[in-house]
């Protein structure tokens, strides 16, 4: 059972922003609801107004603009993303990461915009977005903004979004090279769990290897130090050094899922595996 509130389905971006500004702290945006409604059910949140964004134009679906990468509507359910041919063929790492979110039922509702707006350090899609260097398109009182994903996350539950502002689209810049991405997530159970630690690695044909971490810092983070090590060398020793660099960047906490120490160790283990697998995947043809 949920406690009473008012539900409004916004018809435009402007209306959504207007409603949110008027509701202030009592207002919450709704897309898939798989986080918001859970918190409301658990009585952690009690908004007076819930503003549904799913009817706002531009927030649904994946569009591919030739030579300009990909635009994903923020309210697009993850399963639609995972099944989208353009995403799978060119941004496979994002599809793979999205695939590890919750259950099939959850992924039919949960949206990409919601996954990042909640700003959980463990948000599964965030490391992939960091590696694809996504731009987060937002709408708010001051109109449209584009925020590089690296500047979007500010801390656990905190983002660059201003009051009344919401994520409307996620833009993935064009990736001209062949690439191969791997997302490794360690949970407690093999399915439907939150990450204790996660690592994404993206190997690019030009020799670059990008690395990002989830659940081991206040925000998802990209580890340029590790990437630098792999720029010229990709032997076993370099992979080990890069993994160690990832571990040094990690700043995890101890919580009910795992201790800080375990998370640190797993960051290194997963990073080494992810890099290795990404390089092997690229060598085998990539995407």
């Amino acid at each position: 059972m949920l406690l009473p509130f008012d539900y409004v389905r916004a018809r435009s971006r402007e209306e959504a922003v207007d409603l949110a500004l008027r509701a202030g702290a009592d207002g919450k945006f709704l897309a898939g609801g798989t986080d918001l409604l859970v918190r409301m059910h658990d009585r952690q949140l009690r908004p007076q107004m819930v503003i549904d964004l799913k009817g706002v134009s531009g927030l649904q679906g994946v569009s591919c603009c030739d030579g300009e990468g990909l635009v994903i509507g923020a309210a697009t359910p993850l399963n639609r993303l995972i099944r989208d041919e353009a995403v799978r063929s060119k941004y496979g790492l994002l599809a793979e990461a999205a695939h590890t979110v919750g259950s099939l039922q959850i992924r039919n509702r949960a949206s990409l915009g919601g996954n990042i707006s909640n700003a959980s350090p463990a948000a599964d899609t965030a490391p992939a977005l960091l590696l694809y260097e996504a731009e987060i398109v937002t709408w708010g009182a001051s109109g449209r903004r584009e925020i590089p994903v690296g500047e979007f996350f500010k801390g656990p539950g905190a983002t660059a979004l201003a009051e009344g502002e919401f994520v409307s689209q996620i833009r993935l810049p064009v990736l001209k090279e062949r690439s191969y991405g791997v997302y490794l997530k360690l949970g407690r159970t093999s399915a439907v769990d939150l990450a204790i630690a996660s690592v994404a690695a993206l190997a690019l044909e030009g020799g670059e290897v990008r690395i990002a971490l989830g659940a081991v810092a206040p925000t998802p983070i990209r580890v340029k130090e590790a990437e630098a090590i792999l720029r010229s060398r990709k032997d076993e020793g370099a992979i080990r050094e890069a993994a160690a660099a990832a571990r040094r960047r990690a700043a995890p906490i101890s919580d009910i899922r795992a201790s800080k120490e375990y998370r640190l160790e797993m960051t290194e283990v997963l990073a080494a595996r992810a890099i290795e697998q990404a390089l092997a995947g690229l060598a085998a043809g990539g995407r």
């Binding site: 609801g33 798989t34 409604l37 859970v38 819930v50 099939l104 959850i106 039919n108 509702r109």
Partner: peptide
């Protein structure tokens, strides 16, 4: 599509 009806209004 299958969904959790506890998380849909």
């Amino acid at each position: 599509e299958p969904i959790n009806s506890c998380l849909v209004l």
